[in-house]
Amino acid sequence: MEDIYSARVLEEYKHPKNFGTLSSPTHQSKEANSCGDTIHMFCTVNNSVITEIKFSGKGCAISLAAASLLTEFVKGKTIADVNKLTENDMHQLLGITVPLSRKHCARLALTSLKEALEK
């Protein structure tokens, strides 16, 4: 069994980047999954470009590490860039083979971000 709790995943879980809130986000959304995990995304978007991004919430190591890595990755990217991202991109960011039972954990941050940018 591959250890999905890699050094990278554990580091992002223990010290997540961009964890917090924005006081005046232009876009935000809070999404939950069936486990009870929640990821609240806050973004500032200027001319379709994400200039600031934070997230808050509760979740497992995979969902929090995914949120940390995703928020770091999308800084400076456009809404169109984000909309092109897929579950596989999330797995690549995490750098692990995400087992079937944990795919929803890896997906939550992306779902929340896409939902925020749609509003």
Binding site: I4, Y5, C35, G36, D37, C60, A61, I62, R102
Partner: peptide, 22 residues
């Protein structure tokens, strides 16, 4: 203080079959 899925998954790596969640 950690998510139940993380704990149960890591227990699984030690051959412990336990369940997590609701």
């Amino acid at each position: 203080s950690h998510h139940s899925h993380d704990v149960a998954y890591l227990l699984g790596a030690h051959n412990i079959v336990a369940r997590s969640g609701h």
